[in-house]
Amino acid sequence: MNRMSILSRTPLDRASTENHTRTAEIEDFPAVEVCHVHFYYQGKVVLDDVTIRVDPGRFLGIIGPNGAGKTTLLKTVLGILPVDTGTVRIFGQDPRGARMNRQIGYVPQRLNFERDFPVSVMDVVLMGVKVKRFPWLQGPTVQGLRIRRAEELIKRVGLSGLEKRPIASISGGQQQRAFLAQALCIGPRVLILDEPTTGLDFKGQREFYALVKNLQGETGLTVVAASHDLEALAYNADELVVLDKRIWLRGKPDDVLNSTELKRIYGIRNRAVLRG
């Protein structure tokens, strides 16, 4: 099986995307560009002059203590939260447009969905691609392609045989892999991970990031991940930034982790964080 084919956007997807810019043009822009962004909530500063640039195919890790603004930053990148000042661009596009054009995949923290919610793993993976109106009018060929792509992704994330299982009946780690497959099923160019391994055990965390890293290496996907798990991010990311309202540090993972600034922000020994 050619793994590249799983994640690449099909011609059908491309045709259906109204504002789709040609790939050659898109590649001229940074994958994610956040310029001097300020965000305030109820008069308090959440993001203070944040600037980030991620080139296509790179893996950026965002670390920072609780309340540092990691989720807010990711939500501005997704176009869910409008910034007060500054700009956010995804491949040169407005993030809301990029989200609507399915250029951004998103894996959230573990969800607290209803225990008996009547959807299977396959239903969850297909949810993102079915939200277009009248999906049944797109014909059996498109539907068949999507189901095949979902099946391939389910296999790729290691959930084969669980397609028909209710989503709530599988473990937390398996659920997160199902959400990863869901995010990839729309054929995104940028993958946003918001503390996706929270609540998972050590093995589950490592397996999840290893899977993301493999998929990124195979497909050239751009990944932006926020996490408390410094070690997992340091091991997998090409670059780390330390966020606490503003960007305090950025650089190669080893340089960032050995910095004394990190110790100040977390208020503890860096290595203790890594081993904990």
Binding site: L78, I80, R99, M100, R102, I104, Y106, P108, L111, F113, F117, V119, V124, M127, G128, K130, V131, K132, R133, F134, P135, F179, I186, I192
Partner: peptide, 22 residues
């Protein structure tokens, strides 16, 4: 019927649905 899948996604999780363009 027109909005069936979007409504289903919203019922499942609002934030996740919004991130997928719902």
């Amino acid at each position: 019927a027109i909005n069936f899948h979007s409504l289903l996604f919203m019922c499942f999780d609002e934030d996740l649905a919004q991130a997928h363009g719902v």
